[in-house]
Write a protein that binds this DNA or RNA. Structure first.
Lengths: 276, 276
DNA sequence: GCAAATTTGTTCGTATGTATT
DNA sequence: CAATACATACGAACAAATTTG
């Protein structure tokens, strides 16, 4: 046996978790029990448990115990546009449809609408002057009751002045904001570009997604800029997803409709030539 | 003042880092110095430093000290296909071109070629029987000398039997494997699908990417399945990237060539309505 | 509703080991 | 080899959260 004692204990517990001896959701032995079992001090067994916590294998709850984490079945969002609707994953109607298609149940909060001054990415992507007004529409989204995404769309105030006054309504626009803009202004989403990043969550995101306080789970942040037929940007949508329960699919080229299904590769990890 | 003492110390150090009082690369005060400064025990200042370590703000080096981490400029990989070449980011020639276009310097190791039995995702995606032979071509990629990605492509052995014997060569295939398959077998990549996931790194990935041992930085894993004109899969490419220095872009719809540039939104984060 | 028991969280102290300069 | 700096390990006490009686 080699390495520090706390690592040996952590490795042994990790092995038990991976072999299913300690099943997901199950409580680990308490600190005094581990202490007796491994003949180590309390601080050392706590170091071992912390090692597992940092790697997301277990979660400690004060007053209750330490539990093996249960991994949620990842939800797959399609980022490329659907051939017919031109809509990509996560957007209004596409979100609802995609969730239902995966046999799960979507819910979205009423939008929180505000008018603010464009700055940073918002001004850059919408190509408006910094300080000019933009409409922000923010929604919280849930799947099967669990927090799924935080989404904020920004529209230049010019769209409202041109007649799209419902952008300021603090309620969902049926059948969809895109359709509404097409109807009122003849605006058509000709293309869009997505940028996907991963970063550490903010405090409010940690709260919303119920992430562990360790900073271990990061969030996906996608920036989607939509362009009209004249290639002018008219919307920026910033979405945030928890990285531990979301995956993204992208299709390129002509895709037969029946082929547009994906499943997570996680359930069948063997055979990729990875090490253990 | 509220919260545990170690958090107060950690928050104060974090503030100093964010305000630039402690610049990237700079050494933090030593444990005895922090101990004197904050009037806390050594274990407590160590808890504070660990808090920062877990969140990736600092890095401890035995015998040297604790240092503020320097964040590498993120590299952006385009996942959607290029209108002309049909190639997506990360693939052979596209990788070289994209890196150079961002003003950086690419390098790839010679491929490690092996023949193995298909299993799991590989068998599923290539639609071959589990246990049948597949060719695996593995490469390590570097940008500006830093480890960038681990990439493994899997081809059904049937392609070799049909005449594409160079797939077994343990050297790069010029001008590209895709072009070679087109030349020899008339195989054309009509479409592909990508799946993007984030997971914790394996041990060998931690070594290759020189990731902190804290398990904090996760890796992107992309699964790209390429299909021919008859919509049969002929290649699966699994790529792994460090999540702390990579981003992905996706373009949909008709995209003017001059619009196909992206920059990271990280440098201009203000104005997205996020909290601090 | 309250009190006791259980379980993890925080903080101190001390000693020794390992890596680097 | 010596000095410096972080890593590991032990012990002890009290606090906070939760469940149970």
């Amino acid at each position: 046996m080699f390495g520090p004692l706390y690592r040996q204990i952590a490795d042994d517990l990790q092995r038990q978790i991976e072999e299913g001896i300690l099943a997901p959701g199950q409580r680990l032995p308490t600190e005094p029990e581990l202490r007796a079992h491994y003949g180590a001090s309390r601080n050392t067994v706590r170091d071992a448990v912390r090692w597992l916590t940092t790697r997301g294998l277990v979660r400690t709850k004060p007053g209750q115990g330490t539990f093996v984490v249960e991994r949620a079945e990842p939800f797959i969002t399609t980022l490329s546009s659907h051939p017919e609707t031109g809509l990509g994953g996560g957007e209004g109607q596409a979100f609802q449809a995609e969730v239902v298609a995966q046999g799960r149940s979507p819910r979205a909060s009423q939008p929180r609408v505000s008018v603010l001054q464009a700055a940073g990415v918002v001004a850059d992507e919408l190509r408006v002057a910094a300080g000019s007004s933009v409409v922000s529409r923010h929604q919280e989204r849930f799947i099967d009751g669990s927090p799924f995404s935080l989404q904020t769309s920004y529209y230049p105030m010019g769209l409202v002045q041109a007649g799209a006054v419902r952008l300021l309504e603090a309620s969902s626009i049926h059948p969809g904001t895109g359709a509404y803009l097409g109807e009122i202004l003849g605006l058509r989403q000709a293309r869009y570009s997505d940028l996907i990043t991963v970063r550490t969550p903010t405090v409010s995101e940690t709260t919303f997604f119920e992430l562990p306080d360790s900073g271990r789970v990061s969030v996906f942040e996608t920036f989607r800029t939509a362009f009209d037929a004249e290639d002018r940007p008219f919307r920026l949508t910033v979405s945030v997803f928890a990285a531990d329960r979301n995956e993204f699919a992208v299709f390129s080229g002509v895709v037969p409709t029946e082929a547009r299904t994906v499943r997570s590769p996680r359930s069948a990890e063997a055979g990729t030539g990875r090490d253990a």
